[in-house]
Design a protein around this nucleic acid. Structure first.
Length: 297
DNA sequence: AACCTTCCCTGATGGC
DNA sequence: TGCCATCAGGGAAGGT
């Protein structure tokens, strides 16, 4: 499930392949993934070049000459670059987990919903098994981009992410910590995996409610969030199920997870058995010793 | 306004 | 072997 570190890894991998390239053709699989003006994607972006590649939370942003093309990967979205100059460009063997094979490129199949081909011959391919992903197209100008993102919360690794703004975001919230972390209006880019990892790092029990938190506990969470996100980026993202980078390769951060998916196994810090509960219909993993329910200590 | 539940979607898995 | 139920979950929509 692509969260901030996975989207950032895709962004970095794609960047050198697409900057300055004019769009030659667009092929759509299931048009259901297209949102807003993206329904007329083909007519609107053909001939436009990719100027830059950005990211906001879990959104990947292609800056074109006159539009922004924006991807959200949902649960199973994949965005890969197909390089015709690579010798394995037409080889494809299905991988049971990722749907792709390591060092092989994505050849369009029934789950490929968008292909953008460049005049140089390369292409980016969007594949999404569960179709929770979305593609948006918005015109440049008059703050259209900031309006599009106006409900998103703090962006980690930017000056916006500071302790004053962070503490401000707890105001009037009474829900459980896990639910807050999953709310994109709080901090943008955190999903189920990194929410659990951040709460472990901060030593906070996921079912704790916001009003029960002391100041120093919020400060620990403030530090923990960028720490676990950076770790995810450093290891090329977490490939728990479908995630692959722009080369179709899985990340390695799944080997570094402290709690996510480790229910029944022992905690690396204290050897207590990791528990799994459900919060906000999301599987939630934590160490009952490192993340005590009672406040404080 | 804040919070909660339901729904979308496919493939993997387990029971019989 | 086949068939069906269940589960995974990001975020929008609708209800309280």
């Amino acid at each position: 499930m692509p969260e901030l570190p996975e989207v950032e890894t895709i962004r970095r991998g794609l960047e050198p392949h697409v900057i300055g390239h004019p769009v030659h053709d667009v092929l759509v699989g299931d048009p259901k993934i297209l949102q807003l003006e993206a329904h007329h994607l083909k007519d609107k972006i053909r001939g436009q070049s990719i100027r830059s590649l950005g990211r906001r939370g879990k959104f990947l942003i292609f800056e074109l000459d006159r539009h922004y093309l924006i991807f959200h990967f949902g649960m199973t979205g994949q965005l890969t670059f197909r390089d015709p100059s690579r010798s394995d460009a037409n080889r494809f063997k299905r991988h049971p987990v990722t749907g792709l094979e390591r060092a092989r490129q994505h050849v369009p199949d029934r789950h490929t919903h968008l292909q953008i081909h460049f005049e140089q011959g390369g292409a980016i391919l969007f594949r999404d098994i569960r179709k929770f992903g979305k593609v948006f197209l918005i015109e440049k100008g008059k703050n259209r981009l900031s309006v599009f993102f106006n409900r998103l919360g703090l962006e980690p690794f930017t000056p916006d992410y500071n302790i004053q703004a962070f503490l401000e975001r707890f105001r009037n919230r009474k829900l459980r910590l896990k639910s807050l972390l999953l709310d994109q209006r709080f901090v943008a880019g955190i999903g189920n995996i990194y929410a659990d990892e951040a709460l472990f790092e901060a030593g906070l029990q996921p079912a704790r409610t916001i009003p029960s938190l002391r100041r120093f506990e919020k400060e620990k969470l403030f530090e923990a969030i960028p720490l676990v996100l950076k770790r995810g980026i450093d290891y090329g993202g977490t490939s728990f199920r479908d995630y692959v980078n722009s080369n179709g390769e899985p990340g390695t951060h799944q080997e570094k997870l402290m709690v996510y998916g480790r229910q029944g196994e022992s905690c690396y810090r204290c050897e207590t058995i990791i528990e799994k509960i459900v919060i906000s219909q999301r599987g939630t993993h934590f160490c009952p010793t490192c993340q005590p329910r009672r406040r404080g200590k």
